[in-house]
């Protein structure tokens, strides 16, 4: 059982949790993820480690409520417990030092970028984070990201704050030379359609681009193969070979199609949750 020490509601459907998990906090590196289970009959779901602190033995996760399990999780409060938590899983983000690193985050991706951008900034790299949301109320962790990276670029679809338009439009301007300047490396985390758009935006310029794939997973250790993603002409397991892959090689059509495997069952689960309420682990 893993205790929730802090909970913050970032947007109506986005919650941040700081959780006691000493071993994971010590081993974690930016870009890795955990798998958790909320209750005895619960599903195992993957979530990125948004931040970790080996001194206090805590990790931070940010979850967007999209279905039954994420809603169950979102309903937990400080002082309650998460039943199972395993990690850190996957490989850390690996980008060489010395260039202009640009992180692009959409949805929970903004949070997922946090500790990576901070570590790149701390080692002396030039860093820019581009985050986007439909409007300014849906932006996440703006203050934290501002500290974690040298430049922060905010985009909203409705122009309620920052640049009016998609993150990819702002990225394109930078590739074309707008300040803070052309990226040398890009890492994008967020919904798959956004990551695909980033891949298309940077393809022609051949700027090395990583995307953090989030297929459906079960074990997270290479045991089920459910998380397979086609990268170039090889099939990779996102949980052990990834989650980050070369954006220009990923077969996004296939990856997006595969996340729809359980659409009907996901609806059933949500309906059931609505009629029966949330079950707590503690």
């Amino acid at each position: 059982m893993y205790e929730i020490l802090e909970k913050h509601t970032l947007t109506p459907i986005t919650k941040l949790f700081r959780i006691k998990a000493e071993l994971i906090a010590r081993a974690a590196r930016p870009g890795q993820f955990i798998i958790l289970r909320v209750h005895e009959a619960g599903e195992r779901i993957p979530l990125t480690i948004a931040d970790y602190d080996s001194e206090t033995g805590t990790i931070t996760i940010v979850v967007q409520e999209v279905g039954a399990t994420t809603r169950r999780l979102g309903a937990l409060e400080e002082g309650e417990y998460i039943l199972d938590l395993v990690g850190p899983l996957g490989n850390p983000i690996d980008i060489p030092e010395g260039g202009h690193i640009v992180g692009v985050g959409g949805g929970f991706g903004a949070a997922a970028l946090l500790c990576f951008m901070r570590s790149a900034t701390l080692r002396g790299d030039r860093t820019t984070t581009i985050v986007g949301a439909r409007n300014k109320d849906l932006l996440l962790l703006v203050d934290e990201l501002r500290i974690a990276s040298r430049n922060l670029e905010i985009c909203t679809d409705d122009g309620s704050t920052g640049f009016k338009g998609f993150v990819t439009e702002r990225l394109k301007q930078m590739i074309d030379g707008d300040p803070p300047g052309r990226p040398d490396y890009i890492v994008a985390i967020g919904p798959m359609p956004m990551m695909r758009a980033v891949a298309e935006t940077t393809r022609e310029s051949e700027i090395p681009t990583l995307v953090s794939m989030d297929p459906i997973m079960v074990d997270g250790t290479g045991m089920c193969g459910g998380c397979r993603v086609t990268v170039g002409d090889t099939v990779k397991f996102a949980c052990v070979d990834g989650p980050c892959f070369d954006a220009h090689q990923v077969d996004f059509d296939e990856a997006i199609r595969r996340t729809k495997t359980y659409l009907r069952e996901q609806e059933t689960a949500c309906k059931r949750l609505e009629t029966e309420g949330v079950i707590h682990a503690s």
């Binding site: 039954a68 359980y262 069952e265 996901q266 059933t268 689960a269």
Partner: peptide, 8 residues
């Protein structure tokens, strides 16, 4: 046991 259990 789905949907009593969450994994489909």
């Amino acid at each position: 046991a789905f949907p009593e259990s969450d994994t489909p």
